[in-house]
Design a protein around this nucleic acid. Structure first.
Length: 607
DNA sequence: GAGTTTGAAACT
DNA sequence: CAGTTTCAAACTC
């Protein structure tokens, strides 16, 4: 959680800027001169420049990271005190968001305020000041962990492999954007609360500026979550950022309504509202809540439909709907628990027994987490780490590098030949490496010995028919044909409309994503964004722009896939996806779904 | 859905 | 650090 927290800190800077803007003089100027408004825009645009809309970026996934980093660094300049304040505030919000059960009401209050009025918002924040302080304390404690800076830097390179990271990061971004929006709305001469309606109705200039700013701020969120076809996606992305799981769902819903007024969709209030709500409410836990959130009856209807659909799909895929962990003895306080390991609280869909991984037991959770981290600082770090060299590797010779990402620790498979999800490398969509102690490694993503697909093919050529080889390749590069089980999974994903937008699928899922319809994968979609890099999102965006048919074609064309993603692209994307949920073949809610859910209030600095 | 297999996590 | 046990997901039937 290093990254997130760090991000928070850095993000705090914007707030300071806003404070300047808060001054009456500034407000007055703003009201008089549109130029002022524009002034803020540049910043946003800078961010938005990263925008997924730029096709070129698609091929440069790695840059995404750099962008992020640069952005944060620039923000770093802010005063320390301000940063601290911002951190506290953000942390507080995060805590609220994450404490879905207990803090839900509180959350809602805090969230809604933006929509309603600043005063209320402030009051709410103050009320939650304790939580905030708590968060700060936690952060400080965590900061005790050595090499924060180093960890952060490392994190950026990790590409948010872990759900927690991505989520937290997303959340941070969102928060930041929200804060800005909030501040703006509150400080603006009009003092009008920012709401969907307001946004839609108010001067186009102001709206544009705000939207741009908002967009810029959220760009990352967008990238992660919704490569969405529409601008709507952008607006929604923010919400999803807040809470991958529900947020995505909501986003999906919103997106589904095709006629939507973009402005409305983007409205801060709307985003915030949705995001918060979503965050507060466990995914799918209460479809009604979602419906409630939706303003249009149409949306609501869609939502309603989605839930059942998703369930059916999941069940169809072999996983129980909304299924998450199933811990019986670990109390969900050990890494055995995927929820816990993913840094998220268990929620209703979990089938765990004696679960302590709930907001109610936050203290216990955090303490346990801390304990585990003390034992293994990287325990909660993404299992799959993107190789910083991956880019270079790709450029130089993809064939030489089995995978752009590797499992942090390496697997230890004895019987699965690294061809089943038992293998964390395989599960993460990455090849095995020298770090692995596996036996008889046949990891389709890259064998421990370094042999790649090509090599594998050659080696196996004698034993297998050419067709088999081809198929295998297709599996590797083609989403349609995942190595072993994937196929079934993808299909569902492919059918998710929303997910298609959001998802940054690994090579395989990627291509399918266009076809993906609503499904459990919807959750996936939400999550994926988190995990995926900006580049991925960009890729998706492009894909989205293309007709479904085209996408389909691409999907079926390994070459096309490769080209679009680049040979390594597949690997690059996988890592992100992998650990969390990205693996294409992970159709079930299983681990993938987990990532979509609310994260712990404070994640460890490591991430 | 129950039972088995598997390998990571935890423990000694 | 190595060996063993525990655990829950993945998988099979």
């Amino acid at each position: 959680m290093d990254t997130p927290e760090k991000s928070v800190t850095q993000i705090g800077t914007p707030v300071s800027k806003l404070k300047v803007e808060d001054s009456p003089v500034f407000n007055y100027i703003c009201s008089l001169s549109p130029i002022k408004t524009l002034k803020s825009i540049p910043i946003t645009q800078t961010l938005s420049s990263l925008n997924f809309t730029s096709p070129p970026s698609v091929f440069t996934s790695p840059h995404a990271v750099s962008h992020k980093e640069s952005r944060f660094r620039s923000q770093k300049d802010g005063s320390a005190s301000k940063e601290v304040a911002s951190i506290g505030e953000e942390g507080n919000e995060e805590a609220l968001v994450e404490n879905s059960e207990p803090a839900q009401s509180l959350k809602n209050d805090c969230n809604t305020p933006r929509v309603t009025n600043d005063v209320r918002d402030n009051g709410c924040c103050e009320d939650s000041g304790k939580d905030l302080q708590k968060m700060l304390d936690n952060v400080k404690k965590k900061s005790e962990t050595p090499d924060w800076e180093t960890l952060i830097a490392a994190t950026t390179e990790l590409i948010y492999g872990s759900p927690r990271e991505s989520e937290a990061f997303s959340c941070l971004l969102k928060r930041t954007s929200n804060s800005e929006a909030r501040i703006r709305g509150g400080t603006m001469p009009t003092s009008k609360p920012v709401s969907n309606t307001d946004v839609g109705n108010n001067e186009s200039e102001s709206l544009d500026a705000l939207s741009i700013l908002h967009r810029g701020v959220r760009r990352r969120c967008l990238d992660f979550e919704i490569p969405g076809n529409n601008q709507q996606t952008l607006g929604e992305s923010s919400s999803s950022c807040v809470v991958p799981s529900i947020g995505l769902h909501l986003n999906t819903i919103a997106m589904s309504s095709k006629d939507n007024n973009v402005a409305n969709e983007y409205s801060f209030s709307g985003d915030i509202k949705v995001g918060l709500q979503s965050s507060a409410t466990p995914l799918l836990q209460s479809p009604h809540d979602i419906v409630r959130e939706n303003e249009t009856g149409k949306d609501a209807g869609q939502i309603i439909e989605e839930v059942p659909k998703r369930k059916s799909e999941q069940s169809g895929e072999g996983g129980s709907s909304c299924k998450r962990c199933n811990c019986k003895k670990s109390k969900c306080l050990k890494l055995y628990c995927e929820c816990f390991a993913a840094g998220v609280y268990c929620i209703e869909p979990c089938s765990c027994i004696d679960c302590f991984n709930k907001p109610i037991h936050e203290d216990v959770v955090l303490a346990t987490r801390k304990q585990i981290e003390s034992r293994n600082p990287l325990a909660f770090a993404p299992k799959v780490i993107r190789n910083s060299d991956s880019i270079i590797e790709v450029g130089e010779d993809a064939s030489k590098t089995p995978a752009s990402a590797r499992h942090k620790r390496g697997c230890n498979c004895k019987k699965s030949n690294c061809l089943k999800k038992y293998c964390e490398c395989y599960q993460g969509g990455v090849g095995c490496s020298i770090n692995c102690r596996c036996e008889g490694c046949k990891n389709a993503f890259g064998r421990k010995d370094g042999s790649l697909f090509e090599q594998d093919e050659e080696n196996e050529t004698s034993g297998k028919s050419g067709t088999t080889k081809t198929q295998q390749n297709a599996e590797l590069f083609n989403p349609a044909a995942p190595p072993s089980t994937p196929l079934p999974i993808r299909q569902p994903l492919a059918q998710l409309p929303i997910s298609s937008n959001n998802r940054l699928l690994p090579p395989q899922s990627h291509f399918h994503h266009g076809a993906i319809g609503s499904s459990s994968s919807g959750i996936y979609n939400i999550r994926k964004p988190d995990m995926s890099l900006l580049s991925h999102s960009r890729i998706e965006t492009i894909t989205e722009d293309i007709d479904d048919d085209m996408t389909e074609n691409l999907i079926h064309s390994p070459i096309a896939n490769i080209n679009s993603l680049s040979p390594n692209s597949k690997r690059v994307s996988l890592p992100h996806l992998d650990s969390s949920e990205s693996s294409p073949w992970r159709r079930n809610g299983g681990r993938n779904l987990i990532r979509s859910f609310p994260t712990f209030p404070s994640l460890t600095p490591h991430h």
